[in-house]
Design a protein around this nucleic acid. Structure first.
Lengths: 241, 241
DNA sequence: CGTTAATTTGAGACCATTCAATTTCGGTGG
DNA sequence: CCACCGAAATTGAATGGTCTCAAATTAACG
């Protein structure tokens, strides 16, 4: 895979929000990165690790999760190609959650020291990374609201809306039909529900003609209706800065 | 109030995590800030605002919240003196949530342009602010876990542990007895519960001799027990970077 | 000392969970 | 191409944690 292709999605995403000069891009591509493949369910980072690298998701989907003592798992975010998966580990010494692959993934792995130095030298890159981490935080906040104050239907509808809006904005999909590699158990862990109730709630969304989901293929049949059910307002995604 | 005093808590907090030179502190104090008082429940930022300033909490307690269409409110974080309340608004144009005062507050208000420029000139300040925003995000993640995968007792115990650990680390309190200006309704909104069930759950924690809470005074009677009930591991607070 | 906010109590209803079993799907080897 | 297998999705029924609604009590404050 050529250099441009590895970072195509990242640069495309950043370009929507700020101006990256050709030199900025060149300096980024000149980082000492390497491509690495991970299997489905493979761990990129485990809680307690002291990471020395930073991962850029080139291909595939990933997610962050945290376990509680009862053994239950809470998924904290999903990630799509072109996103940085561990900005927090650039400046925090110890990982406070797990990062795992949803599908087989290809990562561009960069030593965090090199990325830190690039941020020192290049204000535009620094700003892009700072923006990304602020938007990550905005998504976490919305997830607190989602699991804290919405019912089952709303939670799932909101999650589907968020994923759709992000995929659409990234240009990975047109946002109406796309490959959806998330199991019902994972949806349950992302929305703070049980798999059984997730199943029943998805059926209710299907019955109402809002979505169709089978064979890992999600169709958004009524975007307006789904957004309304999910109380979805995409402001928090800050797609236009 | 003298300049040093306004930023005392902030500098103390930052000093635990990195080295701030006398010049860094002087440059920070030389920012064009002003002190401003806010009443209890007063809004600092409303969702949709396009802020031009950044608020540093000097005295009092504040919180972030977001409303859903049903009218329910989810509190997303609490803030104590010495914390920056709207780092996200430094680089994002539109506020995606509300920031409100829990008690009467004094803020140091800084034009965000001035703070941005200081960050450009002073790498240590830049790093401190970046660290703060990463830790904010870590707290949001833990809150997703809290409302998503813990039961009522665990949620409230965890919230009390977090507040105690943060107050202790900031030096505002010794962490065993402190003024607790949060109503049961606000605890409910922070944990995704109803006020009624919050009341019953607090009673159960009191009955077990873990805490005592009345007249806005919280006593942590059994820190170990409370941490265990709340599944509390303070790693995510990153008190030692 | 009056007035409003905050806390507390009771009881019934409901949303979501739990547990267990069944069916369907996706991938693999014969 | 079909048979097989484990994973994922689906269904049923009973349980339970939390909510809702309403009222009473206590605390906070001017």
């Amino acid at each position: 895979m050529s250099d441009q292709l590895s970072f195509e999605a990242l640069f495309r995403r950043w370009s929507r929000k700020l101006t990256l000069s050709a030199e900025d891009r060149a300096a980024f591509v000149a980082l000492p990165w390497t491509l690495r493949s991970f299997p489905r369910d493979g761990y990129l980072i485990r809680e307690g690790d002291r990471p020395t690298v930073c991962n850029i998701l080139v291909q595939g989907f990933a997610f962050r999760q945290k376990l509680v003592t009862s053994g239950a798992r809470q998924i904290i975010s999903f990630h799509i190609p072109g996103e940085l998966l561990d900005l927090q580990n650039l400046f925090l010494e110890t990982a406070d959650h797990n990062v795992q692959c949803l599908t087989r993934c290809v990562m561009a792995v960069v030593p965090r020291r090199a990325l830190q130095e690039l941020m020192t030298e290049r204000p535009a890159i620094r700003r892009a990374i700072f923006l990304d981490s602020l938007i990550d935080a905005a998504v976490f906040r919305e997830w607190v609201v989602n699991v804290g104050r919405r019912n089952a239907r709303q939670r799932i509808a909101h999650l589907l809306c968020e994923l759709t809006a992000r995929l659409r904005a990234s240009g990975v999909s047109d946002g109406s039909v796309y490959d959806f590699p998330i199991t019902q158990e994972q949806i349950a862990d992302a929305t703070g529900m049980t798999p059984v109730h997730t199943n029943r709630t998805l059926q209710s969304l299907r019955r109402d003609g809002l979505i169709s989901l089978s064979s890992n293929l999600l169709r958004i049949l009524q975007w307006e209706g789904l957004s309304e059910v999910g109380d979805f307002n995409e402001r928090y995604l800050h797609h236009s800065v």
